[in-house]
């Protein structure tokens, strides 16, 4: 009887370990493709907005800035934007500012941005965007490309590809400005 109880507990223990192990493997395989987490100051970048007015990245210093490079021809970018709109809505009052530089022609972006309901500043350019991406650490030339810059202007995260919502929320919570 006692042996059966020990055997039963052992099996339950093994099941728990197996479940935890399986979940850990799943989390590892499902994690977003992060490039790195380099802490360095973001360079000054100037790009035109949809009114052809030059805007500097430092304009949003003091906020947590998520620079999300996108394009109207980039399906993963268009897929990610609705989630970013909700994130901006959710965290805007707590100091998050998403900025969306588009690698595209002005007319295409002027049409698409309102259709997508983008509620954050959209910047636009062609080679200027490529240069800006490279200045912010891009080595692949692929979109979407996102860079998270904290309130002090330090790059705290860079990533190609779409964000997982939970991972992005966790990241934002970690780096939101104090107070």
């Amino acid at each position: 009887m006692r042996n059966s109880a020990i055997q039963g507990l052992t099996i339950i223990g093994l099941c728990v370990v197996a479940a935890i192990g399986g979940f850990a493997v799943y989390r590892y395989l499902a994690q977003p493709s992060v490039i790195d987490q380099t802490a360095c100051l973001a360079p000054e970048i100037t790009l035109n907005d949809l009114n052809a007015q030059p805007r500097k990245l430092s304009e949003w210093r003091g906020k947590l800035v998520l620079v999300n490079f996108w394009a109207t021809w980039c399906a993963p970018c268009l897929h990610e934007i609705p989630m970013l709109l909700e994130i901006q809505q959710q965290y805007g009052a707590r100091g998050l500012q998403i900025v969306g530089p588009a690698m595209d022609d002005m007319e295409a972006v002027k049409t698409s941005a309102p259709e997508l309901g983008i509620n954050y500043p959209v910047l636009v350019g062609d080679t200027e965007i490529v240069t800006a991406m490279q200045a912010l650490g891009d080595t692949l030339g692929a979109l979407p490309y996102s860079v998270l810059i904290d309130a002090n202007g330090t790059i705290v995260y860079r990533k190609h590809g779409e964000f997982d919502r939970d991972a992005l929320q966790k990241l934002i919570e970690q780096h939101l400005p104090a107070g």
């Binding site: 197996a18 479940a19 399986g22």
Partner: peptide, 17 residues
């Protein structure tokens, strides 16, 4: 039965992935 339970647990834990 114990072995079967372990296999079942492994299968269940891998299911989300």
């Amino acid at each position: 039965i114990g072995s079967l339970l372990i296999v079942a647990a492994l299968a269940l834990s891998a299911q989300p992935a």
